[in-house]
Amino acid sequence: HSLRVHINGKDFEVHNADEHVIRALEELIRRGADADELKEFLERWKG
Rank of each mutant, 00 (worst) to 15 (best):
H1Q: 15
H1M: 03
H1E: 15
H1K: 15
H1D: 15
H1N: 15
S2C: 12
S2G: 15
S2W: 13
S2F: 14
S2R: 15
S2E: 15
S2V: 15
S2Q: 15
L3V: 15
L3S: 13
L3N: 14
L3I: 15
L3M: 15
R4C: 15
R4V: 15
R4N: 15
R4L: 10
V5R: 01
V5W: 02
V5E: 01
V5N: 00
V5K: 00
V5M: 04
V5H: 01
V5T: 02
V5A: 04
H6N: 13
H6L: 05
H6W: 02
H6I: 13
I7L: 07
I7M: 03
I7C: 02
I7A: 02
I7G: 01
I7V: 06
N8Y: 03
N8V: 01
N8F: 04
N8L: 04
N8S: 03
N8Q: 05
N8W: 02
N8G: 09
G9N: 02
G9C: 01
K10P: 00
K10I: 10
K10H: 07
K10W: 05
K10Q: 13
K10N: 05
K10D: 04
D11M: 13
D11T: 14
D11N: 09
D11C: 14
D11F: 12
D11V: 15
D11R: 06
F12W: 06
F12V: 05
F12R: 00
F12M: 03
E13P: 02
E13W: 14
E13A: 04
E13N: 02
E13C: 15
E13D: 04
E13H: 05
E13T: 07
V14R: 00
V14I: 11
V14G: 00
V14K: 00
V14H: 01
H15N: 10
H15F: 06
H15P: 05
H15I: 11
H15D: 06
H15Y: 05
N16A: 08
N16P: 03
N16F: 10
N16R: 04
N16I: 06
A17T: 06
A17E: 07
A17S: 04
A17Y: 03
A17I: 11
A17N: 02
A17R: 03
A17V: 15
A17C: 03
D18S: 13
D18Y: 03
D18P: 14
D18W: 02
D18H: 08
D18M: 05
D18G: 08
E19H: 11
E19R: 10
E19C: 13
E19A: 11
E19L: 12
E19W: 06
E19K: 12
E19F: 07
H20C: 11
H20S: 12
H20W: 11
V21P: 01
V21C: 04
V21K: 03
V21H: 03
V21L: 15
V21T: 13
V21Y: 02
V21M: 12
V21G: 02
I22N: 01
I22P: 01
I22H: 02
I22A: 03
I22M: 05
I22Q: 02
I22S: 02
I22G: 02
R23G: 07
R23Y: 05
R23T: 08
R23V: 07
A24N: 08
A24W: 08
A24K: 10
A24S: 07
A24R: 09
L25M: 05
L25V: 08
L25Y: 03
L25E: 00
L25D: 00
L25A: 02
E26C: 12
E26Q: 12
E26G: 07
E26A: 07
E26P: 01
E26N: 09
E27I: 07
E27F: 04
E27H: 10
E27Y: 04
E27K: 09
E27V: 07
E27N: 09
E27C: 09
E27M: 07
L28A: 06
L28I: 08
L28T: 02
L28N: 02
L28H: 04
L28P: 00
L28F: 08
I29Y: 04
I29E: 02
I29Q: 03
I29P: 00
I29R: 02
R30K: 12
R30G: 11
R30D: 09
R30L: 12
R31Q: 13
R31I: 11
R31D: 12
R31T: 13
R31F: 10
R31Y: 08
R31W: 08
R31V: 10
R31H: 11
R31N: 13
G32V: 03
G32E: 05
G32K: 05
A33G: 06
A33W: 09
A33I: 06
A33D: 02
A33K: 06
A33M: 07
A33P: 05
D34M: 07
D34C: 05
D34A: 08
D34E: 13
D34Q: 11
D34N: 12
D34R: 07
A35M: 10
A35G: 09
A35C: 07
A35W: 14
A35P: 09
A35N: 05
A35E: 09
A35T: 13
A35S: 11
D36Y: 08
D36A: 08
D36R: 08
D36K: 09
D36G: 08
E37V: 10
E37T: 09
E37H: 07
E37R: 08
E37A: 12
E37N: 06
E37D: 13
L38D: 00
L38S: 01
L38K: 01
L38E: 00
L38W: 05
L38M: 06
L38H: 01
L38R: 00
K39I: 14
K39C: 12
K39A: 14
K39V: 14
K39L: 14
K39E: 14
K39F: 15
E40Q: 11
E40S: 11
E40R: 11
E40Y: 06
E40W: 06
F41Y: 13
F41E: 06
F41N: 03
F41P: 00
F41Q: 04
L42I: 10
L42C: 06
L42Y: 13
L42A: 03
L42N: 02
L42W: 08
E43W: 03
E43A: 08
E43C: 05
E43M: 07
E43Y: 05
E43P: 03
R44A: 12
R44P: 04
R44T: 12
R44G: 12
R44L: 12
R44F: 10
W45V: 12
W45L: 14
W45D: 11
W45C: 09
W45A: 09
K46T: 14
K46D: 13
K46C: 06
K46F: 13
K46V: 14
K46M: 14
K46Y: 13
G47L: 07
G47P: 12
G47S: 13
G47M: 10
G47R: 09
G47K: 10
G47A: 12
G47E: 14
G47F: 05
